[in-house]
Amino acid sequence: MSELLARNAGSIIWLARYMERIENLARILGVAETFARDRAGRNWLPVVQINADEERFFARHRVADARTVPHFYVLDRDNPTSIISSLRSARENARSLRPLISIEMWRQLNRMTSWMSSLSDNATAQANLNALCTEIKEACQLHAGITEGTFYRDQAHYFYMLGKALERADQTTRLLDIKYHTLLPRPEDVGSALDTSHWNALLKAAAGYQASRRVLLGSITPRSVAAFLLFSDSFPRSVILCVRQMDWLLTQLRTRYSLRGGARALELLDELRASLTERSIDDVINHGLHEFIDWIQQHLILIFAEIHQTFCTSR
């Protein structure tokens, strides 16, 4: 069975995207206590902004606080961007992929879904939130580990990795976009304890705290952190690394499996890569970080659409 159904290719990309999305959201919520803090105290709004959910959120809640935001993002079944909703979507995709994915992958997704479905509202209370997010994150890592160890390496696996890299790149840009602006220091704050803890929280949310310490050698500045998240050749969640992976995966699909098409997606990836390798962080910031990130996100959307249109739709 060397062929892969177009529909299944689409489901597998989505499975990977949802699982990656859940992990990222759990990371953000897990450090939210510091992450959400701003000059005025606590502000959970950035978490809502990252997901571009302002409209949906404020239709349901008056204030974005430690009670409403975590519940909205973890357990609210009526919120399509909540972790539980993403998990259900992941599982529905996995259900249609059951003959392709390993039995162990399916079993773990099932167990994770039953566990999350059994949680009470109290699980997202302030005192429990960090522990809950750790468990969710670890469940996602278990999924990743089982996938790495059991998923047969054929086309389906390449599409899985493609979806994962795409979502990861997207999540990193969102994180950077929101926090960069709220964290841009006023002159008097530079180097203060508050400022540093913000950047630490951002790096922790991106799972880059440890690595950034080694690489940035103590110079934690808005510039260095942005450069790290965008350009690091070795940080697994940096945008450039995800783009390189996508490029490699797509090329493999075209050569190893003789898939026609995908040339336009490769072109777009090439543009992204060129920009990410050729531009300096000063250049990016001088021309506007937000504009640059927006341009990357637009490219990612186009790349996904190209891949989906080329390989995953019925022709």
Partner: peptide, 17 residues
Amino acid sequence: RDLVVENDRVYMLTTAG
């Protein structure tokens, strides 16, 4: 929806066509 018939032959729609 994964299958089509053309010239009385059945095909499935895959990533490679």
